[in-house]
Nucleic acid binder design. Sequence first.
RNA 1: GGCUUCCUAGCUCAAUGGUAGAGCAGUUGACUCUUAAUCAAUUGGUUCGGGGUUCGAGUCCCCGGGGAGCCA
Length: 499
Amino acid sequence: MSDIPTDISHDQFAVRRQKLADLRAGGFDPFRANCAQTHFSGDAIKAYVEGEDNAVRVSVAGRLVTIRIQGGSGFVKILDQQGQIQLYVKKDVLGVDAYMAFKKLDFGDFIGVTGTLFKTKAGEITVRVESYTLVSKALRPLPEKWHGLTNDEQVYRQRYLDMIVNADSRKRLMLRSRIISYIRRFLEDRRFLEVETPILQTVAGGAAARPFETHLNALNIDFVLRISLELYLKRMLVGGCDRVFEIGRNFRNEGMDRKHNPEFTMLEVYQAYSDFRGMMTLVRDLFQGLCRDVLGTMTVTFKDKEGNAHDIDFGGDWREVRYKDLITDFTGDANWFSRTKDEKIAYCKGIDLFVEPTWEDFEITNEIFSKKIEHTLIQPTFVTHLPKELCPLAKINLDDPSVIDVFELTIGGMEVAPAYSEQNDPDVQRAMFEAQAGGEQQKVDNDFLLALEHGMPPAGGMGIGIDRLCILLTSADSIRDVILYPQLRPAAATAEIKN
RNA sequence: GGCUUCCUAGCUCAAUGGUAGAGCAGUUGACUCUUAAUCAAUUGGUUCGGGGUUCGAGUCCCCGGGGAGCCA
């Protein structure tokens, strides 16, 4: 009966190639076929009129992911962007030839069907298929239906397989799209303007990080990929865009782990005539809106490094605490900031925290914050008034000139959103840049300083790490779970696919 | 970059240093409302690559590749 030679019956790739060859020999090329699509799966299910079987006719299309054929009829399911819908195929309806051909379809094949909606005995809304077309043959088999694909490496390298067979992955990655879409709507509703600024830059400004280096042949000049959006967005403030944002990729040539990918997505927002306090309200409204309108819940589950689950509550007011208070509370030393460097180093030794003796005081203190304190801040917390050395782009606090008017929003032990009252005094800004550059004059962005000298309105600015936000809102374990194609070493194994 | 750990059939997983197995998928057959459909039969392996120890290596050792976790 079958055209499949028995000697290849074990090789699913070869069997499918043979089926394709048989189809073509019969004058049908599935890759040249097309089909109608009136509904996505979910919309089709909604279109069913209760109690009126076969009253509504739909055309749906998708990938075959479940096959349950039983003699002269059978149930199958196809997967499309909205999910799955069940189809009922019957020899009496399709005719013998079409039905026999249908039985030769494989998991993974794309088909288009037209038929009417009805409800099965088990209560599932299903398409009674009147006609179908194979519109694309899958030559390789899908991963197993029950356990899905669990091999991390294959999940990342062949994300499409992960998305086909792992419903959780598909939902998580689609949720990311909805989160970003909501953020755009939220900001546009508040009159923010979305812009696009250069990724190729001559000075990597706006943050302290090692950039990727490249070369522009046409100008014979070395360029870097941006590490931050900040300085070009501030130029937009100078140019008269009072409320401006960009959602874009940043690149940092540094470590990779559960919270870091070399390319990652940042949102930066700038609002003239506001300040870091205004950004607090903005970010809380944004996150609470995301929870309410996208997630449908104000609490999400978060798993810490030890695997303990916490409920993060995004509702209500959020904790606000000064950086200095966190440090003095942790060290139990109210006079921590007036201690000598040797005393600080001695303390760190005592708590088994490694610090370099060459570090500045603020670096030692910040090591305590980032290694010992930050990961304990699970509930949404505004850490405010950081030491001025940590950021040269923010305004100095009027009451305490050793700190700046900023917050770092920390959730789930991760820095999710830093915000500043933006520095707009060109002379102070230049002094801060020069102190940071430490004599390396080429690291000072003079073009940005020129812009500031033309006058930048006072403004609040904020960055949000979109990947980290998605980790939190989707309860993901790793940044790789919310990035479609995280960076990996090239695989020799997949370089030459066996055939 | 360092430490730990993993890599076995298309996928998910087994296998005291002693004949590489199972489930799903595939193939063949039965079955006209299934839900991981069921029933019967059956094919399928460069155990990531290379070297070594051993009578014998998926297993132990070394080198290399890739993934993950922790650290830097």
